[in-house]
């Protein structure tokens, strides 16, 4: 049954086989995608026609590699900018929220806490359309009453940032709160007794203690923002993010350039995830 109990050979063997099959299932699509990025063929499929770097570096006119594909590069840049903005914003507000819920007491705290958890159970698509509606209403209202026109309220870069921020902040809050719960309040009291100001304490004592969690939460926020599709789909304007751009390309028929982008994403996100893991491990 478990490690400390005697197990039949058939049981162990079939369990190991199951796990191996499971991991093959898990990695098959990724491995195939990455390998086919190097196939010297016009379609992302077998047979293998030889090794080629065309889908990364070709300059055209027949094949345009990833590094010369302006549309993809532009959407990659948009995604990176979005992810940076979202992670900075959500870490800032998420930290405020965890201080608020862990250290302060006020009326309706329970209600506000539930509201903070709500984005966990709201489907991303719904969040997207609600924000689209609300921003549209807000834009119309300002236009009618004050005659002002703000580009922010139309589907645009900043609307995407706000949309992703609205649910990623919840995850940041949960991560930071978990760390804040381990904080020993006597450290703060000692600093206050020694004459530190309230802001000084937060800056030099509490935030120092929280730093690993803040970095970890920031990395998670970055990845979540970078790969978000459902919410973003409804809020993008003329500058699609990478997942939205890739979706449009996949839907209309694909070339191996998508495999090349996928390979880049697999390598990039794995590296970021491993670095994050290394830091969280070291802290434990």
């Amino acid at each position: 049954m478990i490690r400390s109990l005697p197990r039949g050979r058939g049981y162990s063997w079939s369990f190991n086989a199951f796990i191996i099959l499971y991991f093959m299932f898990l990695f098959a699509p990724l491995v195939v995608t990455c390998v086919l990025a190097f196939n010297n063929s016009d379609f992302p499929s077998l047979p293998w026609q030889g090794f080629s770097l065309d889908w990364f570096a070709a300059r055209g006119p027949e094949r345009i590699g990833l590094f010369h594909d302006d549309q993809i590069l532009r959407s990659l840049l948009t995604s990176l900018q979005t992810a940076v903005c979202v992670s900075l914003l959500s870490v800032a507000v998420g930290t405020c929220a965890s201080f608020l819920f862990e250290k302060e007491n006020f009326r309706f705290k329970g209600v506000l806490y539930l509201l903070m958890l709500a984005p966990l159970v709201i489907p991303g698509v719904i969040l997207g359309i609600s924000l689209l509606l609300a921003s549209n209403s807000a834009g119309a209202f300002l236009d009618e009453t004050f005659g002002l026109d703000f580009a922010v309220f139309r589907p645009s870069f900043w609307l995407v940032v706000l949309g992703q921020f609205s649910f990623i902040t919840t995850f940041v809050t949960l991560v930071v709160s978990a760390r804040l719960r381990k904080f020993d309040p006597s450290l703060e009291e000692a600093a206050l007794n020694l004459g530190a100001t309230q802001f000084g304490v937060i800056r030099h004592v509490t935030l120092k203690f929280l730093r690993p969690a803040l970095i970890g939460a920031g990395a998670v926020a970055f990845l979540m923002s970078f790969e978000n599709f459902n919410t973003t789909l409804f809020l993008v304007g003329s500058e699609p993010t990478l997942p939205v751009n890739l979706y449009l390309q996949v839907r209309d028929g694909s070339t191996p350039v998508i495999n090349a982008v996928s390979l880049l994403l697999v390598v990039g996100t794995s590296l970021l995830a491993l670095v994050n893991l290394y830091f969280t491990k070291r802290e434990d």
């Binding site: 990724l30 996928s262 794995s270």
Partner: peptide, 12 residues
């Protein structure tokens, strides 16, 4: 695999 965009996984 779950850190990689859902789109890449579906495409695979």
């Amino acid at each position: 695999p779950f850190w990689v965009s859902e789109l890449v996984r579906v495409y695979g």
